[in-house]
Amino acid sequence: MDAVDRISFSVAAGEFVGYLGPNGAGKSTTIKMLTGILTPSSGRIRVAGLDPSRQRTALARRIGVVFGQRTTLWWDLPLRDSLTLVRHLYRVERSVHRTRLAELTELLDLGSFLDTPVRQLSLGQRMRGDLAAALVHDPELLVLDEPTIGLDVISKATVRAFLTRLNEEQGTTILLTTHDLGDVERLCRRVMVIDHGQLTYDGSVQRLRETVDVDRLLIVDLADSAPPIEVDGARVVRTDGPRQWLAIPSDVNAAAVVAAVAGRYEVEDISLREPGIEDVITRLYRTGVPTRS
């Protein structure tokens, strides 16, 4: 079985693209081919006009890569020293590095732990350090593999805000793989979904919502416990005492269902939950392809 199978896509300069898929779908294989770690058995790849596997050194000077579960920093050195070593690796001029480090220190709020050994940093601090290391040489493309994995809410917000500014203000192209669909909703204007080595979707988050049929959820609190609610256009999927959850298909008028429930039952509270991106992606994984054009 091929890890990836006839995948074809292009990413324009300045885009922020989410590359999604379940475990084993082919995401990491794709990333490793794009960054020159793996050589494809067939096909053609160009990143910034270069062949990644044959021109890996030249490509490294034009891209930055961050793997959320692996650090590129030196464990026993202060973060500042790690970033200095990275400067030498990329042959960045001292004055350019000084200016760039000052920018990254402000944007990523590194100042309070620049002189702390990497091994003493929290996970969120280390991730910000890894981002700085990947950007010291001012790459035109940043490839991120699970950059917010394991981070607390505040650290996630800091990383997301930084990536948004990096993309919007500096025009850095960003390719993001993640299982955190909050990252996708807050960051990506375009998503590609890969499953079983094949690209099953490529487009906007909004169009993905409109393309994949996912039920909305009506949550009804009745005055007392009762048998499952029976109304046209909806079905009960769960009950818990007086609270019932009804699934409403995307092609059914939700207002009509709400009116029917309110007209037939003694209702204390009612709310409608639209499907989130996680629901949409989960459905797409299960069906393999969009159910509507």
Results as ranks from 00 to 15, higher is better:
residue 1 M to C: 09
residue 1 M to K: 12
residue 2 D to S: 13
residue 10 S to H: 14
residue 14 G to F: 10
residue 17 V to L: 13
residue 21 G to T: 01
residue 25 A to E: 00
residue 31 I to M: 07
residue 34 L to T: 01
residue 37 I to V: 15
residue 38 L to E: 09
residue 38 L to Q: 09
residue 39 T to A: 14
residue 52 P to L: 06
residue 56 R to C: 00
residue 58 A to C: 10
residue 63 I to W: 10
residue 68 G to Q: 05
residue 68 G to T: 05
residue 68 G to H: 05
residue 69 Q to T: 13
residue 73 L to Q: 01
residue 80 R to Q: 13
residue 84 T to P: 02
residue 86 V to I: 15
residue 96 V to W: 10
residue 105 T to A: 02
residue 110 L to F: 01
residue 113 F to I: 00
residue 116 T to F: 04
residue 123 L to Q: 12
residue 123 L to K: 11
residue 135 L to V: 00
residue 140 E to R: 13
residue 142 L to A: 02
residue 142 L to Q: 00
residue 147 P to V: 10
residue 149 I to P: 07
residue 157 A to V: 12
residue 158 T to Y: 09
residue 163 L to S: 01
residue 167 N to H: 07
residue 169 E to G: 07
residue 175 L to E: 04
residue 184 V to W: 05
residue 190 R to K: 11
residue 193 V to S: 06
residue 194 I to P: 13
residue 201 Y to N: 03
residue 212 V to S: 12
residue 213 D to L: 14
residue 214 V to C: 10
residue 230 E to S: 14
residue 230 E to R: 14
residue 236 V to R: 08
residue 246 L to P: 10
residue 259 A to C: 09
residue 264 R to M: 08
residue 269 D to A: 14
residue 271 S to K: 12
residue 275 P to V: 03
residue 276 G to K: 02
residue 280 V to C: 08
residue 283 R to H: 02
residue 285 Y to C: 00
residue 287 T to G: 00
residue 289 V to W: 13
